[in-house]
Nucleic acid binder design. Structure first.
Lengths: 189, 189
DNA sequence: AGATTAAACTAACAACTGTTAGTTTGGAGA
DNA sequence: TCTCCAAACTAACAGTTGTTAGTTTAATCT
């Protein structure tokens, strides 16, 4: 673990504020107050408000892309790949809940990096959908609408940032297992 | 169908803009431009920016409360109650996708009406959870973590506003059925 | 002790924010 | 034709926004 630089502190504090009020509603003066300094001093460490958002979102988006690349190139069953995706989301989200909030809610304010973000997101969703469709063809997965399946899973996983902080008693493993069970096996007897 | 007043037009246009950029990032001048008028003219019809948000969110929140009240006082099985909840979300969302975006993303900017909104939301979630727990006790529903079940269903349903506009070919009934199947029966063979 | 430097500061900027006051316009009812 | 009124307008406000320039502070290295 490398020590947290002042810049990291600012970015993490910003992520927390963005989670609570959204990017646009957080001012540089809000951020400065939360850091115990004046707004102008922030600029000794960061380039711009926009740049903070970029770092928060793009880093996480690339984590997801890397995780998905490992999953699709593995030799597991499609159901197991889906379980790996659930774990990927639980892991990334549980060590960066605030960042996930920004990724979910403030990506549209990315400006210069919006295009790149959307590229990563589209590729991720395409890979996700392909796993589901292959699983249906292989009769591992019920022949429901594959897009509804992906939508249901992905929106649940994307909202984990809202839920993980409220359930600190549940460790990452138990949560991933519980979620896999509910999402994959259904709920009715 | 009563005709749409100028005030309604403004509120609906605002909801669309709020959906795209979030409440804080939309200025009264943005809204005026979208309406083809000057910002000051908006105030002939509405009280404040804050009041627009209040109308958008509270109306929908009360629709959900009313819908839930009917469901809990019905005599159906708990599984059927869950299916009714799915339909409730599909119905409300499909006739007001923009408003649902504001409800999901901008409720924290409600100021004076925040407390009331949170009261409605908490009651709604308590009712939802009770249906699941009763269903588990009655062996209608698998004995999984009831909160994970609710979280999974509710976040999927809350995100419908993102998805319905992309799938205009799917009518409300088919979507509700497909969702119920995936959420309740699971996806694996 | 003197030099260096990271990191804070004060002061200010031009642009933008929601909103108010007072005025003009154009069409409907008398 | 005259009156009325909804609904637009112009002009302005006080406060807030992200950001820059230049300065001070206090600790570290030589």
């Amino acid at each position: 673990m490398k020590p947290e630089t002042r810049k990291d502190e600012i970015i993490n504090t910003a992520a927390k504020l963005f989670k609570e009020k959204g990017y646009s509603a957080v001012t540089m003066r809000d951020l400065a107050t939360a850091m115990g300094m004046k707004a102008a001093s922030l600029y000794n460490h960061i380039n711009s408000k926009q740049d903070i958002l970029k770092v928060i979102i793009i880093c996480i988006a690339e984590e997801f892309t890397n995780g998905m690349d490992i999953i699709i190139s593995s030799e597991e069953s499609n159901i197991d790949k889906l379980k790996k995706i659930v774990s990927l989301h639980v892991d990334i989200t549980s060590h960066n809940t605030s960042g996930m909030a920004s990724l979910n809610n403030d990506w549209m304010h990315l400006e210069d990096h919006l295009e790149y973000y959307l590229k990563l997101r589209n590729e991720y969703e395409a890979n996700f959908l392909k796993i589901i469709k292959t699983g249906i063809t292989a009769s591992e997965i019920k022949n429901s609408n594959p897009e509804i399946i992906m939508f249901s899973m992905l929106t649940t996983l994307r909202s984990l940032y809202l839920w993980i902080p409220k359930k600190e008693d549940l460790n990452a493993n138990d949560l991933a297992n519980g979620l896999s069970q509910v999402l994959i096996d259904g709920i009715n007897n």
